[in-house]
């Protein structure tokens, strides 16, 4: 029951956020540069910049390895972690993009 309530609250939050502030969706793509670094670029579906948007790099257990923000050019570059990882582009509730490290290729 508590689980259901939590789900409902989460769902309501998503609906409210989506309906109020944003008529656009967050976009993020990452590339393996092939030199031990990874480049991510972000933005929004209306073409607006993601400059300053928070970006997280997490290991396989979900621990944050690295936290940063999108540059003026909506880019973020970091050293590729050893082992499994994922990137979270965090533009606020309901506006997160999660990219699995295995999908980040050259």
């Amino acid at each position: 029951m508590q689980n259901l309530i939590q789900k409902l609250i989460a769902l309501t939050a998503v609906i409210l956020t989506a309906a109020s502030a944003y008529a656009h969706t967050p976009l993020c793509s990452c590339y393996d540069n092939g030199d031990g670094t990874v480049l991510c670029e972000g933005g929004f579906s209306d073409g607006s910049s993601a400059s300053g948007v928070k970006i997280l790099v997490m290991d396989a257990s979900g621990n944050t390895i690295l936290e940063g923000a999108m540059s003026e050019d909506s880019e973020f570059e970091f050293d590729k972690p050893q082992g499994d990882y994922k990137v979270v582009f965090d533009a606020g509730p309901g506006h997160e993009v999660e990219i699995d490290g295995s999908d980040i290729v050259e």
Binding site: T25, L27, S29, E41, S45, D46, G47
Partner: peptide, 13 residues
């Protein structure tokens, strides 16, 4: 004079 468009990543630019 011909134009064709391709989009990558749904980002309009």
């Amino acid at each position: 004079i011909t134009k064709s468009y391709v989009n990558k990543g749904a980002m309009p630019t």
